[in-house]
Each structure stands twice: as structure tokens, then as C-alpha cells.
Design a protein around this nucleic acid. Sequence first.
DNA 1: AATGAATGAGCGTTCATTCAT
DNA 2: GATGAATGAACGCTCATTCAT
Lengths: 216, 216, 216, 216
Amino acid sequence: MAPGSSIGGAEDPAAQVSESEAEQEPVPQRLLTAATRLFAERGFETTSVQEIVDAAGVTKGAMYHYFGAKDDLLYEIYARILRVQTARMERAVDSAESIQQRLRAVAVDVVVTTVTHLDDTVIFFRSMHLLHPDKQAEVRAQRRHYHERVRRLIEEGQSTGAFRSDRSAELVVDFFFGAVHHLGFWYRRDGPMSGQQVGEQFADLLLDSLRPDSSG
Amino acid sequence: MAPGSSIGGAEDPAAQVSESEAEQEPVPQRLLTAATRLFAERGFETTSVQEIVDAAGVTKGAMYHYFGAKDDLLYEIYARILRVQTARMERAVDSAESIQQRLRAVAVDVVVTTVTHLDDTVIFFRSMHLLHPDKQAEVRAQRRHYHERVRRLIEEGQSTGAFRSDRSAELVVDFFFGAVHHLGFWYRRDGPMSGQQVGEQFADLLLDSLRPDSSG
Amino acid sequence: MAPGSSIGGAEDPAAQVSESEAEQEPVPQRLLTAATRLFAERGFETTSVQEIVDAAGVTKGAMYHYFGAKDDLLYEIYARILRVQTARMERAVDSAESIQQRLRAVAVDVVVTTVTHLDDTVIFFRSMHLLHPDKQAEVRAQRRHYHERVRRLIEEGQSTGAFRSDRSAELVVDFFFGAVHHLGFWYRRDGPMSGQQVGEQFADLLLDSLRPDSSG
Amino acid sequence: MAPGSSIGGAEDPAAQVSESEAEQEPVPQRLLTAATRLFAERGFETTSVQEIVDAAGVTKGAMYHYFGAKDDLLYEIYARILRVQTARMERAVDSAESIQQRLRAVAVDVVVTTVTHLDDTVIFFRSMHLLHPDKQAEVRAQRRHYHERVRRLIEEGQSTGAFRSDRSAELVVDFFFGAVHHLGFWYRRDGPMSGQQVGEQFADLLLDSLRPDSSG
DNA sequence: AATGAATGAGCGTTCATTCAT
DNA sequence: GATGAATGAACGCTCATTCAT
């Protein structure tokens, strides 16, 4: 992978304030930021490499020094959001709360993360098919890992009676994350609801379907 | 191109009725069918007009005779599935059944229709942003019309007490249709579940969230 | 293969004298002529497609309408000279002359043909390795076919005693054609010797090695 | 390439002792060895500087430290083989043997040297035109010097009656060396004949053409 | 002596669309 | 209605070379 493409990175603890004019960020980050915005605005295939490097203030040669191909940018965008969401989900799942609270935390969190990185999500589901098959497989595997962890959480709740058992855990997961992944099609950050609010309500809807039926 | 390399295949094992020699379908339909398959397989941007006309067994000139541009094909694919789904939804909504039964029918039906025309759905959500803005607006308006009709159905149920009122009808609609529109990412027609089965379970999950709470 | 790429072509039986200004020749021929000159002048990799189409007075699009890739031009240049040389060799080999006269005719002819199409020959041996492997294999097979026909002619002469038998027919063929294929490195059409003269002398040298030894 | 395959040969026959870990050879040689192999395998134009330095285990900066440009590598490869062949030819020509034996020794030797350094020869005749004109002129002059020395040897034999005089010494030289220079197109080191065997037979063919005619 | 990030010009190729026929 | 040759602009990518370190 390209150097400097880490995401969370706590680099630069010291303040290097004095950088007189240009490059605040390393080149790979600048490219990723520019690409994310442009891909979300006009689509992957409709954005030229020239537009990306112009927006990032570098040359094509520099880009190809760090990324092997245009769709490596796509891959990095995916990998980045996937890494963030997986790490957060695992923290929530493994917490000491009740199972309802843990599932609710996962649900709220994935909505909040999704709307925070809405561009990445939009790009992801619009353009995954344009990724090189090998990288596509990697991304799918990682996504599947995420879903399966959540499915096991639900099954755990079903086995203890915390959740009703006559709902397919797998289908509930596909249903819920389908709804989440579709947020990019309608959610507006400048609209009436915060990500947190949507997350709470989505969590309600998810838990509605798993609450043990008083009549059964 | 070699003579006889047309796509429909001149095999004619028996006499399939009166179609004496060539074209089973009119040219525009053949083009739409070919385009749908190719767009779903490899994406709109990645499919060339040449590939479409080859697959349809016609020439470029013929295509431009019927369609003003490549993205007119996209528009027609959208319009077609939208017309079908809207008509079916309206029939279900306006039936004489109970409101629960009507909402359930709508839910099952949109899932069944979606998986029946999975290619169209996949193309739709992947490529809508590539459509000419004017046509994109038309498509969005039609989609909104659909969602709003269903939202009003839910609100009607909430006002009569058939559905619980502490769920936002609008959000429930976005949530549910989000899940439905995402089917293309995981549903496989050759998998274990029929469209009808998924539809029934999705309907269960939708109604779970609207069933009046026995405790409140 | 591209339309109109035949070489000997007896087309144009009628005299179309009146063509007022431009295109004397069909586009594919114009491209091949321009490419041959440029490849010989500066090499295949050093000549850009843009230079070729400019020299031919057409656009890139037109070129790619007739040739699938830049190296299809190379292939056509090879195939053209190979076709000509093979046809002429076969005519000479199958004539009614004595075997010495037939071999001499082949030898003279391949030299004459080579210096007549010296550009093609130079390009051929300089750039064959840049051809797509599949096409390279085709070209090699055709070349081998040529060599083997001549080898059999020599073996025929050896079996009848017309040629001495203690020279390897195969090696003689490789030796002689090696010398011929190298003509492009030193022969100058504006130099002191005509192709016919070089051909006669090369033929002498070839036959020197096959003349039955008076002492053995 | 295996250690010890250097061209001048007498280095370190015993004592490969103290080379503790890495670089057996100095950087320029490593680059030349890598470049030779790659140019022969895929051609000069098709081999990137990056590939060469990777194969040599150095960086681009190191290469440009020793060689002014990519085609300096080409020039060095030419100069190297030319130096070797010229030195060996002069030794043979100036020996005390009969003129027939001296010409034969030259002929055998150039074949043996050529197949021993077949990669260099292949590169030479494929890519000489890509060399900077000045360096190309140097190389041609050196090559001409070689040919002329051999031509004078033949003329010497013709003037003494050792060789027949009705063959053009110049043409015989072009003919013979043409055949030799073409060895790279068909000779395989893993084939049935050793370089020595091919050399002997090539020498026979050369001398066949110069043997005084018993009938004239 | 050696690094490797960065340049910048140029490459082969694609492709939606047009238009004379 | 339909053809298919031709356009022309743009595309992703390569690469020899430079240069601050």
C-alpha cells in the first residue's frame, strides 16, 4: 500500500504551524480527500484523474507514485470507512452493556458514522462494481465480516430469549443494513434531523422487530 | 461480422409460430433488453454503445434512430420499472382489504417486483446520478410520488390507531424502502429464498415496527 | 482483417481519373504506407500513432476503425511482404527448370524482393519482438513454411546428386537467409549495385556451397 | 545472471572468499547485466529504467549516477561485445597460420563469440537505430573496421591465389557476417548444435565460396 | 554515493456521436 | 429505416529524467 495512507493517524503531535504557504497535508491524503469529494459529486467514471490531481494540487505523476491506478483511490476510500466502522462496531459489541443496549449502540453508531462519512458511503455503493475484482473481493469479505459479527450478536440475544426467535437474524441484518446503506439517497446533513436522531429512530425500528412478542 | 451471427439465433428447432425468419422483438425492445443486461453486468459507464448494439444485433445508426443518446436507454429502463411498481402499488393501496393487509400487500409486492426486475433496480441505484439532470428530476419526482403514497397509507393507519403513532411514517418509509432498494446487493435469484418469501419476511419486519405497543 | 487490405489487388478496372483533389488510395493503404516509412525511419516504438495518422492524412479514430491496434500495422506490413515472397518463391520452385536453375532463381528473387521492399524487411527484423505474441507466432509459422520449402528443394538436389550431400541443408538455408535478411543493414538502393546484381552474386555464393566437390 | 558470466573472464577463479553478504559485483556491472537480459527478453523500448534498476537491486538515482541516460546502457553493451570480437579477430588474423586456417579461425571464432553473447548480439541489431546518432556513428565505425580487416584478409588470399578471385571480397564479407549476425533469430543454446559446431560449418560454407575453382 | 518523490510531456486507445449514403 | 466510416476530444497511464536531501 502507499506510504502515509493510514487513516486514524495520530501523527504530527508537534505543531508545525510555520509552514508558510502550501501543503498542509501529505500528498496521498490530499488526493484521497479530493477524490472523495469529486467521486461523490459526479461519480467515479465521470471524474478524470486530471480533475483529481488538479483539485489536490499535484501532478498525475505524483498520484501514480502513490496509487497504482485510479481505482486504488476508490479502494482506499472503501477501506478507510470500513476500518472505522468495523473498529467502532467491535468496541460496541464487546462492551459490558445488556444485549439490547449493545445492539442499539451498534445501530446508532453505524448510522452516525454513515452520515458523518456520507460521501464515502455514496461512492461505495454506487461504484463498487467498478473496482478491480480482486479488491472488490477484499472489500466484500470485510463487509461480510462486519455483518456476521452483528448477526451473531442477534443470535446470541435470540438464544437467551432477549430477542424473539421467529425472525431470521440473517434477514434482519440484511434488512437493517440495507436501510442504513441507503441513507445516502435521501439523508441531508443540512436537513431537519441529526445523524444521532436518525440513528436512534433506526435503532428503535430494528429493536421493534426483535422484541419478544407479548402475544407469542 | 459473419452472416448468421445474429443474436436471436436462427435455430428454429420446431416452428415457433409464424415468426418466419428474424426479429422476434422490435428493435427498441431488443436494445433495452440488451442494455439492461449489460448495464447490470458491467455498469453503465463501462458498457459501450457498440457492445449494446452488437448484443442487440443491430447497428449504431439504428440505435440512434430510436434513442437520442446512450443515457436515454438508462432513462427508459428507469421509467419502465417505475411504471410497473407504481401501478402495482396503487392497486394494492386502493384495494378493499384492511389497512394492515394493504400495507403488507404493498410491502410484499415491492419486494417481489424488485427481485423480478433485479437488474433494473441495480442499474437504477448505481447509475441514477449519470442521467441528464432533467430526466433525473423526473425520475426522482416519480419515486417521491410512490413513497408519499405509502407514507399516507401509514399515516392513515396511525390516525385510526391501527398502527402505533410514535414512529415517524416518513422515516419508516425511508427505512423500509432503503432495505428494499438494497436487495440488489445481496439477493440471489438462485439462492435459498424466493422473492415471495423475502417479501413476507420484510413485510413482517415492517409491520413489527407499526404494531401498536401492548404496553403503551 | 481490415477491409481493403489486400495487396496485389486488381481493383479499379475502370479508370477513375477525375478524382479532383485528395484521396488517391483507400485509408488502410494510406496508413500502411505511412507507417512503413515512419517505422523504417525511426523505429516502431519511436513512431507515435499520431505521427502515422498525420502522415496518412486521417484521424486516429479512422485508424482504429481499420486496425485494432498499433501493432496490427506492423503485422500487416509483415504479412504483406511474406505473402509476396512466398508466392514468388513457390512459383520459382515449381517451375520446369533444372534444380540448380530453380534454386538460383529463388535466391536471386528473394534478394531482389528484399531490396525492393527494404523498409519492410528492416522493420520486420528490428521489431518482430514487439508484435503481439499470437501474431508473432503466425508470422514465424509463415516464415518457417518458406524456409522449409527451400530446404526441401536443396534436399531434393542432394538426393539426386545435383548438390553435394555433406552440407546440412537446414544450416545452408539458415546461413543463406540470414545473409539475405541482413541486407537492410548495409545495402543502399542508391549504391553501386542493383538488387539483381546482389542477387546473382548471393546466388553464386549459395551454389558454391552445394556444388559437388570434384575432389570428393 | 550467474556470477562469473562476465565477459572478460579471468576474474577471481579461486578465492570467492570474503564477499560476506550482498553485492558480488560493482553497481555499473550489475546494471549492465540486468539491462542486457531485459533488453534481450523484451526489447529496449519496452523495458523501463525502473525495471532495470529493480532487477539490478539498485535505485534510479544510482543508475543516473553511473550512466547519463538509458541509452548509455545500450551503448555500453555494444561497445563491450565489439571490443571482445575485435580483439579476438585481430589475434586470429595476425597469427602465423596459413591464410585458409586464419580465415577459418576468424569465422569459427565470430560464431562462437556471437552465440556465447547472443543476448548482446540480438540487442545490437534490434536496437542500434535507437542509439544517439553520435554514438551510433562510433559503433558503426568500429563495426566497419572489423569488416574491413576481414575483407583485407580475403583480398590477401585472392592476390596470392589461395582464394578464387572472381568473388567480391566485400560482398563475401557482407554475406558471411550477415549470416552470423542473424544467428540470434534462430540459434538456441539448448538446441542440438554447439556454437563450435555451427562455427565449423559456417566456416566451411565461407571457404566453399573462396576455394579456387578446379575448372577455372 | 545514493535516494525516491515529483515532474511534464506524451503515449495508445476509447467512444458517443454525426452524417453522407 | 438503417448503415458504418469517420470524427475529435478526452481518457488512464507511463516513463526518462531531475533534484533536494
